[in-house]
């Protein structure tokens, strides 16, 4: 009985040692990710504050690279403060589901490559000039 308990204790100690090693690896990975974010200038006080302070402001057209195929036209219109009909006109979208349709689903319905179509959306956003009232 005593031997059984000692064995069980040893197994647990071995498992704890393995987990401690895993923990060290995870901390190294975390540090590397943190360094990457700092290198990309996404993680410094100023960047976080600017992101926090200007979050509700529309993104400038220069940020069009963040547009992804899973985004809907409605979402793209909102984050870049585009008029509802701008992308519809610029890309000749005749689908009645516009703007409540993801870009990739629209592209697939038109037999277009979703990434190529997303690039078209990005370009249309980049060249958007808001009308000055």
């Amino acid at each position: 009985m005593e031997t059984l308990k000692r064995n069980k204790g040893n197994y647990i100690k071995a498992a704890l040692a393995v987990l401690a090693a895993v923990l060290i690896v995870l901390f190294i990975l975390l540090f590397r990710q943190y360094s990457d974010l700092r290198r990309e200038r996404l993680l410094n006080e100023q960047a976080v504050w600017l992101s926090f302070a200007s979050r509700r402001a529309p993104l400038p057209p220069t940020e069009a690279a963040i547009i992804q195929p899973w985004m809907t036209f409605d979402y793209v219109n909102r984050v870049f403060a585009l008029p509802r009909a701008y992308l519809q006109t610029a890309l000749n979208v005749a689908d009645p589901r516009y703007p409540q349709i993801p870009l990739y689903r629209y592209a697939e319905s038109q037999h277009l490559d979703p990434w190529a179509f997303t690039d078209e959306v990005r370009n249309s956003v980049k060249i958007y000039q808001p009308t000055i009232q």
Binding site: L19, A20, L23, L26, L29, L30, Q33, E40, S51, L59
Partner: peptide, 25 residues
Amino acid sequence: VGSYWESFSDVVGIIVAITVVAIVM
């Protein structure tokens, strides 16, 4: 983090993994 959430999702994933390992330990 707003529009940059994707850049931070890996960090959060690692933090969650650290929490799992710490709890099991």
